[in-house]
Design a protein around this nucleic acid. Sequence first.
DNA 1: ATTACATACGTAATATTATAACAATATAAA
DNA 2: TTTATATTGTTATAATATTACGTATGTAAT
Lengths: 137, 137
Amino acid sequence: MSSNHTHNKKNQTLTKNQRIVLNLLQDSGEPLKAYFILNSLKKEGLNSPLQVYRALDKLVELGKIHKVESLNSFIICNNSNCASNTAFTICERCGKVKEIKNNNLTEGVNELVRENKLNITRYNLEFYVVCKTCKIN
Amino acid sequence: MSSNHTHNKKNQTLTKNQRIVLNLLQDSGEPLKAYFILNSLKKEGLNSPLQVYRALDKLVELGKIHKVESLNSFIICNNSNCASNTAFTICERCGKVKEIKNNNLTEGVNELVRENKLNITRYNLEFYVVCKTCKIN
DNA sequence: ATTACATACGTAATATTATAACAATATAAA
DNA sequence: TTTATATTGTTATAATATTACGTATGTAAT
């Protein structure tokens, strides 16, 4: 009856294809491209692009992963309550992508959205940066 | 010596291909896809995707147009001083895209960026909305 | 004017990303 | 069990974007 149990239960509702795609993204932590996922999971029985895209679509819909639009890539969701909103930093030098968690920035964006009376259903924010590691070097 | 003259001067530095692509996007005002642009401009002498993509790349670089990443489309820049930053609302029902101009929202985003000490070089913000027209109907 | 350089051009081929169409199967609900 | 819904597997194809190559053009320095 741990929270772990609940988490497993949730994942059990996923189909085999959905689960192996999610696992790969989870293990990687990085944004992966659909055809890279396909190639990586050939041995697990994924044979066609559609199988990958269908799994990805479903996982995006469930909020378990996000699409990084400007990279045509998919990344695990690190933010349990981000719903369908996404906010990333993308390092222009090394390509590293980080999801911006519920902090001042997303709080602030929510406020701005309210203030501006925008009828927002969801948003996708991509901030291009030079990450700390790259800045040093 | 009007401001119009300056504007023309600027456009004169564009090549033929760049100018006809820019004109199409200007006249349309909507986000257009590369291959739509290609088909539209066949009569003007554009024959290959590469000619379109090269013109688009240059125009993006010059800040005259923007790419709407999640739509794989390109739209005229309505905001003379947006540099390489972009902020759009995209209606989920009718697909209408509007560039958010220098108002409270982008001001606020800039502030948030400063506050959070993010080393931002540029950003791309996509807000999915239900636009006024669609909301009524 | 001539060289050197960068930029842009045209064309063909190809790579990458994503979807359509269809028949079969599994899963959940009535 | 019957019905409805979602998912699967497969083939084919559409849509988006880039590589490679050789040529032409514009610009600036010599």
